[in-house]
Design a protein around this nucleic acid. Structure first.
Length: 256
DNA sequence: ATGGCCGGGAACCCCGGA
């Protein structure tokens, strides 16, 4: 089984990349973030033509999340049930017996911003909801754009980034609290190395210079952990014309 | 690294992103 996550920074612009990637990679589930479109604009027909079902929780201009799968998509949940939120950041479903949660975590903008407090509150609500989800679903994967680089290995220049969002102690603590629920950062099951990133700024030739952050993650429950075969960051889409600033992260699991 | 790049939407600038 292959599970993936990709912040596409506008599905309207990135649909050709997504369709090409689906055909080439044939995932069992692809989670998208920042579709930036209302449900009425979501390309259900084009995906169906490529052999994929999809569910979407979208809004105009900002946010928006989706799950794409060739399989039946069951028991769909939109939004955090325990947090009143205008922003469309959560969609979840059960696919082939695995609970798949797609999350677009708040950016937070700056540590002294109201948006940062919203980020911490949102992460706290996510934490409590995942506790409930784990009680109901032994096999669970939490995929998405976390907007958190878990430690200094996940940041190209920790000194330059000190005091910024995405690397702060508060955000990293929230990430560790998710792991403490019995979740594992699947990428770290296979590599302890620094320098592997999933996002690079559009400016300053950051991708070419590998000045990035690892902020897109696939967390897996204890029941899935022994099934993990590989977790890889696919840098190919970041090299295309008009790329998203994020690139896909892909987890391969044994079937049982 | 923080001006520099993107995308969206409303108007050719501003906001938000990371």
């Amino acid at each position: 089984m292959k599970l993936a996550t990709w912040n596409v920074n506008s599905l309207t612009v990135r649909l050709p990349h997504v369709l090409d990637w689906l055909v080439a990679n044939q995932p069992d589930a692809l989670c998208l973030q920042e579709t930036k479109q209302e449900d009425s604009k979501f390309p259900y027909a084009a995906l169906k033509e490529a052999g994929f079902n999809a569910i979407h929780n979208g809004q105009r201009t900002y946010n928006g999340v989706a799950i794409i799968s060739p399989h039946a998509i069951n028991d769909v949940q939109l939004d955090l049930p325990n947090f009143a939120d205008e922003q469309k950041r959560i969609i979840a479903a059960t696919i082939q017996g695995v609970r798949v949660i797609c999350a677009y975590v708040v950016n937070g903008q700056a540590l002294d911003s109201d948006k940062f407090q919203y980020k911490l509150n949102w992460l706290n609500a996510l934490h409590h909801w995942v506790v409930d989800e784990l009680k109901q679903h032994e096999k669970l994967a939490l995929l998405g754009d976390y907007n958190i680089a878990p430690d200094d290995r996940d940041c190209h220049d920790p000194v330059a980034w000190e005091g910024q969002v995405l690397v702060s102690p508060q955000e990293r603590e929230a990430f560790q609290k998710l792991l403490a629920l019995g979740l594992s950062d699947s990428f770290r099951l296979f590599s302890d190395e620094a320098g592997h990133y999933s996002w690079w700024d559009y400016r300053m030739a950051a991708f070419r210079r590998n000045m990035g952050l690892r902020i897109d993650h696939i967390l897996v429950s204890d029941a899935l952990k022994p099934l993990c075969l590989s977790c890889q960051i696919d840098k190919l889409p970041r090299k295309l014309e008009r790329p998203s600033d994020h690139t896909p992260v892909v987890l391969t699991l044994a079937n049982n």
